[in-house]
Computed example of a mutant assay.
Amino acid sequence: MTVHEDVGAFSPDSEWPQDATEWLMLLREEPDDAEIRARFEVWRSASPDHPRDWEEITHTMGVLRRVTPVVEVPVGRQVRRRSVIQRIGLGRGRVGLAAFSLAASVVLLAFLGPDIALRLRADSVTGRQEVRTIVLVDGSQIVLAPQSAIASRFENGRREVRLLKGEALFTVRHDAAHPFTVFARGLTVTDVGTVFDVDAQDAGRVTVAVREGQVSLGGIVSEHSPILLGAGEELSARDGTTETRTVASTEVGTWAQGKLVVHDWSVSAVVARLSPYAPGPIMVYGKTLAAECVTGIYTLTDPQGALRTLADGQNARVVHATPWLTILHR
């Protein structure tokens, strides 16, 4: 008798897992259970997509396991199996104790915050889910996004801020005799009396967008003749290349008011921006889903609600592996 005949075919109402993410959690709980393994093999051979999905999720988890050790939670075998199967079968968005071993490799990353070296360099650092408003000695104001850091220097007529990490919205009190300058990844932003946003969240890229007034850009984008950006203009610099485009000035820095406004962003880009506002990391499982483009307004003060809105629009699901790890997948 073949394995297929022994365990039977899957149906949409089966209590057994229906995708790679859930199978990973169940198999981690019961690696030696012959029936579970047989059911898994049936699922994997049921569609050409399943082997590819399985390879992708196991590769992702393998990378996470190399970041920090996995902590195993000892639980009785029968209790574990019953709990995991019931939770997967009764509610597709829930998992059992298997999630602890799955997510342990990222829990430390979620709560340790910026590394010690960054803290030593910074004057102000924000953690996960933290938005902080800083009033400088000259009356200028900085709103720091979650997981961001700045260092400032106000002496001998200098007004300088270094964005060491993350994103910040600047409202500057203009003083022609003492320019206000922001440094971020080799880019120099000098205020000409304005409200502007500097974003260095994406690796290797820095973006400046102006809500009010005007800024002068130098450094990596222009060593000789500064580039002027006015209200409703945005410049992105990456790998020695720059891109300038027109944006709605009213949408610049809306994250500081708890709103994320996106136009033709990839799902992975939206999730990357939502993640710092959530209790722990959010992962996108599936290259096709990650690359799909969306347009919309998402509420940062309710990141889980925003994620559900994103998932609904893409026919995807949200799995809360633990309070500290969320997975978006189909």
Rank of each mutant, 00 (worst) to 15 (best):
D199P: 05
L24N: 05
M61Q: 15
R159K: 05
S105W: 00
S216I: 00
V161E: 02
T326Y: 04
R28P: 00
S268D: 14
E160R: 09
T60Y: 14
S152N: 11
R245K: 03
A46L: 03
P48A: 03
L274Y: 12
L325S: 06
L228D: 01
E55A: 09
T188F: 01
D6E: 15
T58Y: 01
L235I: 09
F183M: 12
D302L: 03
G240R: 08
V210Q: 06
L26G: 14
V106Y: 00
W23M: 04
L217C: 01
D191E: 07
V294F: 02
V70S: 15
R39G: 03
R65F: 05
A46Q: 09
A184L: 02
R119A: 01
G219F: 10
D175L: 03
R81L: 15
A104W: 14
P51V: 02
V210I: 05
L217Q: 02
R65T: 15
P179W: 00
D49R: 11
I85F: 02
H174K: 03
G127M: 03
V172Y: 08
R66S: 14
V271Q: 08
D115V: 01
Q214R: 10
Y285S: 07
S105P: 03
I327W: 05
V79I: 02
R119T: 04
S222D: 13
V3Y: 13
E35Y: 09
T190S: 10
L328F: 03
L163V: 12
T244C: 09
V267L: 07
F170M: 13
R92G: 12
H178F: 02
R44S: 05
D123P: 11
A46M: 05
H59Q: 13
V267F: 04
